[in-house]
Amino acid sequence: MSTFSLSDAPAGGIARSSGLADKLREVAPGIAAALAWAAFGAACLVREDVGDWSRTTDLAIAAFVIAGLVLVVSVAAAQLGRVGSALRKRSPWLLALGVFFSLWELASAKFAWLPLPFFPPPQAIIEVYTDDLPKLLDSVVASIKLQLGGYVIGAAIGFVTGVSIGWSTRIGYWVHPVLRFIGPVPATAWLPIAFFTFPTSWSASTFLIALATGFPVTVLTWSGVASVPTAYYDVARTLGARPWFLVLKVAIPAALPHVFVGLFMGLGASFAVLVIAEMIGVKAGLGWYLQWAQGWAAYANMYAALLVMSLLCSGAITLLFKTRDRVLVWQKGVVKW
């Protein structure tokens, strides 16, 4: 009891004596972030653009609105609960972004220190999102459809193959050499063959994405199943488990941590195949959009599409990790994405 009161008393005393200084220290990063965004807005209006961009004023207004919101939320953080603390945690990043955007605006649109048209200003990219939205959205949908189809097929086949060769030496005898022979070849190397053997470029790309996903998923599922301690099987067998129970309720759950590593690696590999397949064969999707934008020297469109692509890929990986955290809740200390 006495230890608690000892440690509590001085802390309370300090808080009371320097309450104002503490308050200032707490809101300072938020105010700085608001100032940086206001500076960004001012940078948009400081002089005429060197080029012809239509969204400069809109961007300036948006920057001022963000600055105002950041200011209000960070000053009233205590009253706003979760929103307030979330913003407070991100204030340093908001500050850095505001500074970055201000410099970018000045270096591109206002003084052209960065060579145009290779480095378009922020308003040019905003313009893509507002004016070329339908085409961009179509590309996003096409990419997601292609990626999802190929990934799901590849992951499913890889998982079943991995479990089979990890479990049955007879299946392993036949599949293992094929896997060793074909697996390490980059899936993109199959591109020319796939595009003339498959009826459509879409099915060819699905096949390639499935191939890129399937290899790591197979290998890691297999190693996961193969590394299940035999003691687990002994325990289950003495309790009356039959072979199917051993596969479904012992081998697969025990192998799941490995399977998720395979799914993660497969996702990375399949993104690469997706973009290349879209650039070369499929006439849709973000990869194709990038290629098309480059053909027209529409550099702002390229940056805009790249940004969307990075959001999608990062989102896919976040989704995978969230799923893993739910499924593998029994594990200690899993890596947080």
Binding site: P229, Y232, D234, P253, W330, Q331
Partner: peptide
């Protein structure tokens, strides 16, 4: 058999571990 190591299945809760035999 009860082995020297408990060899509980780490992905199952205590209840589900105990239920293993009846489930099998």
């Amino acid at each position: 058999v009860v082995f020297q190591d408990p060899t509980l299945f780490p992905w199952r809760t205590v209840w589900d571990n105990v239920a293993l035999g009846l489930e099998a």
